[in-house]
């Protein structure tokens, strides 16, 4: 029994156990202090569905050997352009939602391809370069937001009529269309089956993709480029596929995020989009070399639940907002931890 426990502990790894322990502790405190656990739990389920796809976007790059996609804002920006186009055309409901996805798709493929070409030139430093590609593309798009010829009065600044507003509301378009789809009530707990189902569907698609011939080639080239080359695969090509897939998922992810949030945030808002996603998948047990759908689901659940629960509990206990601090400690701590143990697998 003791050995089994130790094995389990080794499999879970210490940091994850600490997080799970902390989470349980917070739940206990929430229960004792009389916070409404059911609504908190409902809120965390929504946040899982809301952020899950952005976390899922990490899987293709890790599998392709590019590492974690710190350049996720590239995909996010494509998704935002898709949302704006859909809003400009005054599309509503599911039509609006899916046309946003449709518009962003070709952009994401193109942007992902260009981004992948760049990453192929900086092998070994993809994550560092990706971070700065993300930062600089956000900055470039700031100019785009100001100059782009959108003219729907809902989108542009009320005074002057030029340049997109920094925060746009989706209320009249497709806010919460997925959140409210198949919303099931179990006692007081609300389960957004539509939202979670969509996330699940994308997980399934990615899972199946990596069981195809191409997917297996991407994975093999990611874990051992020389092996792949010897089997007649060009690792540079498979890396491009991985990055494109990740960028597309980033675009899909932000559209889902936006509909759930009910707002679109432009300008500097996408700047840090990549970091919580990176932290979540690492929390789920992924490493720089290996990431699975299981890591995505577990990581998103732990990370988002932690955030949802900590805020009210913390404000009740310490009379102040340490939630943001906790989020930063957890997310940056996880990234730091993963980067320092990155090469461990090579030794065994």
């Amino acid at each position: 029994m003791k050995k089994k426990l130790l094995d389990f502990a080794a499999k879970m790894e210490i940091p994850r156990l600490i997080i799970v322990g902390f989470l349980l502790f917070i739940f206990a405190v929430a229960f004792i202090t009389g916070l409404p656990l059911d609504s908190l739990f409902s809120a965390s389920l929504v946040r899982v569905g809301m952020n899950g796809v952005l976390v899922l976007a990490m899987v293709p790059t890790v599998s392709a050997g590019v590492g974690l996609n710190f350049g996720l804002p590239v995909g996010v920006l494509c998704g935002l352009v898709g949302v704006l186009l859909s809003m400009q055309l005054d599309l509503h409901g599911f039509v609006g939602f899916f046309s946003a996805l449709l518009f962003s798709f070709p952009l994401a493929v193109l942007a992902g391809w260009a981004y992948a070409l760049l990453l192929n030139r900086v092998k070994g430093q993809e994550m560092m370069v990706g971070t700065y590609v993300g930062f600089s593309s956000v900055a470039v798009m700031c100019i785009f937001w100001l100059l782009a010829p959108f003219n729907n009065p809902e989108l542009v600044w009320a005074i002057g009529g030029r340049g997109l507003r920094s925060t746009l509301t989706l209320d009249k378009h497709f806010a919460k269309v997925l959140n409210n789809l198949f919303l099931v009530k179990l006692g007081k707990i609300e389960i957004p089956l539509g939202l979670l189902g969509f996330f699940g569907l994308l997980c399934l698609i990615v899972h199946l993709l990596f069981r195809t011939k191409l997917g297996l080639a991407i994975k093999a080239a990611g874990s051992n480029p020389r092996f792949a080359e010897a089997a007649g695969i060009n690792p540079d090509h498979t890396r491009i596929y991985g990055v494109i897939l990740s960028t597309v998922l980033g675009a899909v992810g932000i559209v889902i995020y936006a509909q759930s949030y009910g707002f679109v945030q432009l300008y500097m808002a996408p700047l840090m989009m990549g970091f919580p996603a990176v932290a979540a998948i690492l929390l789920g047990g992924a490493s720089l070399q290996r990431a699975s759908i299981g890591h995505v689901i577990l990581g998103t659940f732990l990370f988002q639940t932690l955030l949802t629960i900590t805020l009210p509990v913390a404000s009740r206990v310490v009379q102040g907002d340490i939630s943001e601090v906790a989020r930063l400690i957890v997310s940056n701590g996880m990234i730091l931890y993963a980067l320092t143990r990155g090469e461990r697998r090579e030794i065994a």
Binding site: A220, S223, N224, R226, F227, A230, Q289, R290, R345
Partner: peptide, 8 residues
């Protein structure tokens, strides 16, 4: 180095 996918 080249002959195996060690983790597969």
């Amino acid at each position: 180095g080249m002959g195996l996918l060690l983790d597969d």
